[in-house]
Design a protein around this nucleic acid. Sequence first.
DNA 1: GCCCAGGTGACGG
DNA 2: CCGTCACATGGG
Length: 265
Amino acid sequence: MIITIKDDFDLDKIAESGQCFRWQKFNQGHYFIIHLNNCLEIKYLNNDTYELSCSQEEYNNIWKDYFDLNENYKAIRESIPKEDTFLTEAANMEKGVRILKQDPWEMIVSFIISQKNNIPSIKKSIEKICVSFGNKNGTYYTMPTPEKLSKASLEELKQCGVGYRDKYLLSVAKSIQELDIRSLKLLDDEHLLIELKKLYGVGDKVANCVMLFGFHRINAFPIDVWVKRILENEYKDGYPMEKYSPYNGIYQQYMFAYYRNDRRK
DNA sequence: GCCCAGGTGACGG
DNA sequence: CCGTCACATGGG
């Protein structure tokens, strides 16, 4: 089926934005995406039109929400005050990035693995975990449930290339079974952060990434090495966190992607 | 071989 | 409360 998306939406920018680790790239503007037990092939055609491999019903029920297409990112981007020249420039350059609504459990696993790690390595480890412990669904493997992962051994986990994070993953898989993601969804931002940080191996950075990308708390503001550099270099007099509420998470993604892309040149 | 990668927990002051 | 350190592994 063909759909039209008028809002800011750039598949390549999203794929490169460091929030999703299981998108498979066919070509520029052409991806295979796994979300829970669903998969999608999506291809940019032209003039805001995209070809999707799913039905209209599946798009309405799953993918529209996954891509956060009920939110107006253009309006949010244009509400950035012009006097913040750095953020304005970052948002212009990274226009098209969105905050995906991904599975909270998958985000917990993914961002625990992400600590002190690089993106290609993170992707490989996550894929190995899915192949080793997940279910096969057609041509791809799903992320194993907490129940399934909790039955893995440290030795098996280590073979997925996760290094010292094996004990974090095992502990968290066991904790989450009792914690129940559904009850976490009911908490406000402040209490959700507290609960996530109780998990072994989940600190301030990982918890904020899980909040932003898994629980869609778009005001969460993960501070990693890149954002730390941004705050030190571009906001010497302080970052206006209150002023930018409730969009701190979206703005953080613009800045993160912009700085990271710039420094890689 | 050396250095770094979307950090965290444990420890000492 | 702060600063420091080890932590596994892969890739350049």
